[in-house]
Design a protein around this nucleic acid. Structure first.
Lengths: 153, 153
DNA sequence: TCAAAACCCCGTAGCAACTACGGGGTCAAG
DNA sequence: CTTGACCCCGTAGTTGCTACGGGGTTTTGA
């Protein structure tokens, strides 16, 4: 199937059609040849490249990093430390995010347990908890230090 | 400290100053009184509300949900099921994200182990792996089924 | 045979939640 | 009296798409 239209390519890779055009716009995917009617005609090359992008995106890598990998693959020389760095960076991001999400889950679970069944506004344990926590964290009396901030990604 | 300028409020809550103005623009935070020179003059009320928002954001709740909670607190009647729903939804989101991130970490760790030290482009295990995985996943021969797609959040 | 459905084109605007920029006014300290 | 820290405003940029509007083309099937 050497001459795919955009819909074929999209179906083959599982990437949304609009997203394919978007990748072309930001030059992540090179502009394909056109059929006489103006339709895009993709080759095997595009299919592979897009599949690669899609796979990296499934690993949640930012497009900038993916671009790096693709550039790296394109140029002949060099060692692969840039690749390693990209993967490491991604792994770091994922681990940091995991850490903060685990903490988050704990907090939310605790919060949720404050109110097992719907009650009136005044008695809602969750709201009380939220207000109290917010107050404790940030009330003017003991705030102002450079970082009372919780870790955010 | 009943008359804070925007910088004071920002410091007291740990929220960036531009973000405070942003919250005002989108009407999450009500517009404060102004001093004769045009400076914003915030009250205790704003401090509490902003601290509440900040706390909810630390729980990664979307602003729309936070708005819901604030609205709920403002109006006298009603039971708190909307609050519960918001927290539940957030918990669901967090758990789903955790799940996908755990899978991600595994994949990335495996990927990383393919290349322990920098090598030439041609021998880089990571690149090989990525290309192979992408190819296996999405090559035209067995793609086209409605969902070969990995679960994305 | 011809009309409806499905596909393709393009450019632009919208989403979340900020962040940054540019260009200017105000205020306290040295 | 100037330097620096603070404040004002509006707008545009970020990331990775997704949606919209308004048009052309190709395929299908009655």
């Amino acid at each position: 199937m050497p001459r795919m239209k955009i819909g074929d390519l999209a179906r083959a890779t599982g990437v949304d059609l609009e997203t394919v055009r978007y990748y072309e716009r930001i030059k992540l995917l090179s502009a394909p040849k056109r059929l006489p009617n103006g339709y895009r005609a993709y080759s095997e090359h595009h299919l592979e490249r897009l599949a690669f992008i899609r796979h990296c995106r499934a690993l949640d890598m930012p497009l900038a990093d993916i671009r790096l990998l693709l550039d790296f693959m394109a140029e002949p020389p060099g060692d692969c430390s840039a690749v390693n760095r990209a993967v490491d960076a991604q792994l770091d991001r994922v681990r940091a995010r995991l850490k903060s999400l685990r903490a988050l889950e704990k907090q939310l679970t605790a919060l949720r347990s404050q109110c097992r069944r719907p009650r009136g506004r005044r008695e809602c344990g969750i709201l009380h908890e939220l207000v109290a926590a917010a107050h404790a964290e940030a009330c003017a009396c003991h705030a102002g230090g450079p970082s009372t901030r919780a870790s955010r990604d």
